[in-house]
């Protein structure tokens, strides 16, 4: 069957034998976007977190059929080197990653959090950011999340001034 979805702003149509194939594998293997990671396949670690219509979703547990007609954003579409997302900017400024494998999932979860709660408290972070990091970068991540919130608010203020 054919499934059409918008990935990072581009309309994609994929031919898929099993409509229950996790969105993760369509993103990684069919569309060759490897930034979204496989960690557990059980929606437990959060490494596969991406956005579907702006909501954080663990894509290893999301059948591709549900993505029909929806807008999917992966780490590759969050921002790039020329135009980093505030979360990516903050991650760079705080030098967060170690091995780096879980980081895209954390950044996607954080970006979703900032969309809902622009200025999260430590408690907001504790409740919403529940991915797993083995290297133990949580300490820097927390700093980066607060910094990202400030960067995003600054960016929005600047944009509203320009308007």
């Amino acid at each position: 069957m054919k499934i059409s979805l918008t990935v990072n702003g581009e309309l994609k149509t994929v031919e898929i034998a099993d409509e229950n194939t996790p969105l993760l594998w369509v993103i990684r293997d069919t569309l060759d976007l490897k930034g979204t990671k496989f960690g557990c396949g059980k929606a437990a670690c959060g490494a596969c977190t991406l956005h579907v219509d702006g909501e954080a979703v663990r894509s290893c547990s999301y059948p591709v059929k549900f993505a029909e007609g929806k807008k999917v954003t992966t780490i590759e579409g969050l921002g790039d080197r020329e135009n980093p997302h505030p979360v990516q900017q903050a991650w760079i400024e705080e030098i967060v990653p170690q091995c780096g494998y879980c980081q895209p999932g954390f950044m996607m979860a954080t970006a979703a959090l900032l969309n809902k709660v622009p200025k999260p408290t430590d408690e907001d972070i504790d409740k919403n950011i529940i991915n797993v990091c083995r290297c133990g970068t949580y300490y820097r991540m927390r700093k980066a999340i607060h910094k990202a919130a400030n960067l995003q608010l600054e960016k929005e203020n600047n944009q509203s001034k320009e308007l």
Binding site: N20, P22, G41, K42, A43, T49, E55, A56, V57, R58, C60, S61, Y62, P63, F66, A109, A112, L113, N115, K116, V117, D124, K127, N128, I129, I130
Partner: peptide
């Protein structure tokens, strides 16, 4: 707010995960 039921749970059981 950002991590809610639907981050992992969809409208039907997932037999893979």
């Amino acid at each position: 707010e950002a991590t809610n039921c639907n981050t992992c749970h969809q409208s039907e059981n997932n037999l893979n995960s």
